[in-house]
Simulated scan of single mutants.
Amino acid sequence: MVNINIICVGKIKEKYIKMGMEEFLKRMNLYAKVKIVELKEDGNDSDRERSIERESSEIIKMAEKHKGFNVLLDIGGKKLSSEEMAKEIEKITVRGMSTINFIIGGSYGVSDEVRRISGLRLSFSDMTFPHQLMRLILLEQVYRWFSILGNSKYHK
């Protein structure tokens, strides 16, 4: 079974996002073990670079703890269709990686070091999404990717 870690900065506050996430986490039990790793948000408006460094340092620690293939959600990353990303997941697991870490940085972004430790930088869109909502979108897509790989009706 594949282990999926979603390493993210900050906590979910909105109830409707929590409910949506719970639904996809429940569905994912068929395909993978999913863990949400929430890191403390620094959010220091007066020193954004310092916030990025602090949050990025914690992201790197968690990625190292959960040794696996790191996928950074990054607006400047590669754009893939759901089918293409499902194939990427398959390639990752065929290469023997049983853990995939999806990384969602804080509102100010991540350090270059986080980009360097990422085997794939993935962009969902040129648009900017709230980080909390992005977690729900990511969980839905992870479920979709595994549904594609499992030939489930969900994707159709």
Rank of each mutant, 00 (worst) to 15 (best):
M1N: 08
N3C: 04
N3G: 03
I4D: 02
I4P: 00
N5C: 03
N5Y: 12
I6V: 12
I6N: 03
I6L: 08
I7T: 10
K11G: 03
Y16F: 15
Y16N: 06
Y16T: 12
I17H: 01
I17D: 02
G20R: 01
E23S: 03
F24V: 05
L25V: 11
L30A: 09
L30T: 13
A32R: 02
I36H: 08
I36C: 12
V37W: 00
E38P: 00
K40N: 10
G43V: 13
N44T: 01
N44Q: 04
S46Y: 15
S46A: 08
S46W: 13
D47Q: 05
D47F: 04
R50Y: 04
E53W: 02
R54T: 12
S56V: 07
S56E: 06
I59S: 12
I60C: 06
K61I: 03
M62Q: 15
K65Q: 12
G68F: 14
F69Y: 15
N70C: 10
N70P: 11
L72A: 07
D74N: 00
I75K: 12
I75W: 00
G76E: 14
K79R: 15
S81I: 06
E83I: 12
M85H: 13
A86P: 01
K87T: 14
E90Q: 13
E90C: 09
E90K: 15
K91G: 09
I92N: 03
T93R: 15
T93S: 15
G96P: 02
G96F: 15
N101W: 03
F102E: 04
G105W: 09
Y108V: 08
Y108K: 10
G109I: 11
E113R: 11
V114Y: 02
L120K: 13
R121E: 11
L122M: 08
F124K: 11
S125G: 09
D126G: 15
M127D: 00
L133A: 06
R135Q: 04
L138P: 00
Q141K: 14
R144F: 11
R144I: 09
R144D: 04
R144S: 11
W145D: 03
W145S: 01
S147C: 08
S147P: 02
G150N: 15
S152W: 04
Y154N: 03
H155F: 11
H155K: 06
H155W: 13
